[in-house]
Amino acid sequence: MRVMALDVGFKRIGVAISDPLGLTASPYTIIHRKSNRETFKELLRIIDEKGVGKIVVGIPVNREGKVTQIGQKIKKFASKLEEFLKEEGRKVEITFWDEAYSTKEAQEIARSLGKKKEELDDYAAALILREFLEQLQSKGQ
């Protein structure tokens, strides 16, 4: 089962996908947001095409460990995505992950690769996914 990570922004969503064994994370694509329904359909296409069984959504958390206002909006988006997937007959678990520093680290990677800021959302998603997979592996799951 593959795991997909999402770095959700207001204009773009970075998408990363794991290998079938859930060991490695790779940037996959950047979705330019349209309506929620169109965006969800595009995500569903990737889920079906890649055999995704779990989605990890990056959530910004403040220094006190509380979800930020933007994080609340991302959670609402994820809840609507989950509802859409259920309507489409897909059972895909959605979990949240503290995305602290993923964008900053992605910017450093993108800069070293000569990419623009608009081209790093999928790298940020890959970093979120990498951290998530590393924790799973360390727990032996």
Results as ranks from 00 to 15, higher is better:
residue 4 M to P: 03
residue 4 M to G: 05
residue 6 L to A: 06
residue 7 D to F: 04
residue 8 V to R: 13
residue 10 F to P: 04
residue 11 K to Q: 08
residue 13 I to L: 04
residue 15 V to R: 14
residue 15 V to A: 14
residue 26 S to N: 13
residue 28 Y to S: 15
residue 28 Y to V: 10
residue 28 Y to P: 06
residue 30 I to K: 11
residue 31 I to G: 11
residue 31 I to V: 15
residue 31 I to A: 15
residue 34 K to H: 13
residue 34 K to Q: 15
residue 34 K to Y: 11
residue 35 S to T: 15
residue 37 R to C: 05
residue 38 E to V: 00
residue 39 T to F: 14
residue 39 T to G: 06
residue 39 T to A: 14
residue 44 L to C: 05
residue 44 L to K: 10
residue 45 R to Q: 12
residue 46 I to S: 01
residue 46 I to K: 00
residue 49 E to C: 11
residue 50 K to C: 01
residue 50 K to Y: 03
residue 51 G to A: 09
residue 51 G to K: 07
residue 54 K to F: 09
residue 54 K to R: 08
residue 56 V to F: 14
residue 59 I to V: 12
residue 60 P to S: 03
residue 61 V to L: 07
residue 63 R to G: 12
residue 63 R to T: 08
residue 65 G to D: 13
residue 68 T to V: 03
residue 69 Q to S: 08
residue 69 Q to R: 07
residue 70 I to Q: 10
residue 72 Q to F: 12
residue 73 K to A: 10
residue 79 S to H: 04
residue 79 S to Y: 10
residue 80 K to V: 03
residue 81 L to M: 08
residue 84 F to E: 09
residue 84 F to P: 11
residue 87 E to L: 13
residue 88 E to Q: 15
residue 91 K to Q: 11
residue 92 V to Q: 12
residue 96 F to I: 02
residue 96 F to L: 05
residue 97 W to E: 08
residue 98 D to N: 12
residue 99 E to Q: 00
residue 99 E to T: 02
residue 99 E to H: 03
residue 101 Y to T: 02
residue 102 S to V: 03
residue 104 K to N: 05
residue 105 E to W: 03
residue 108 E to K: 06
residue 111 R to C: 04
residue 112 S to M: 10
residue 113 L to T: 06
residue 114 G to M: 12
residue 116 K to L: 09
residue 118 E to M: 10
residue 120 L to S: 14
residue 122 D to G: 05
residue 123 Y to Q: 03
residue 124 A to G: 00
residue 125 A to V: 00
residue 130 R to H: 07
residue 130 R to V: 00
residue 132 F to H: 01
residue 134 E to R: 03
residue 136 L to Y: 08
residue 136 L to R: 15
residue 139 K to M: 14
residue 141 Q to L: 13
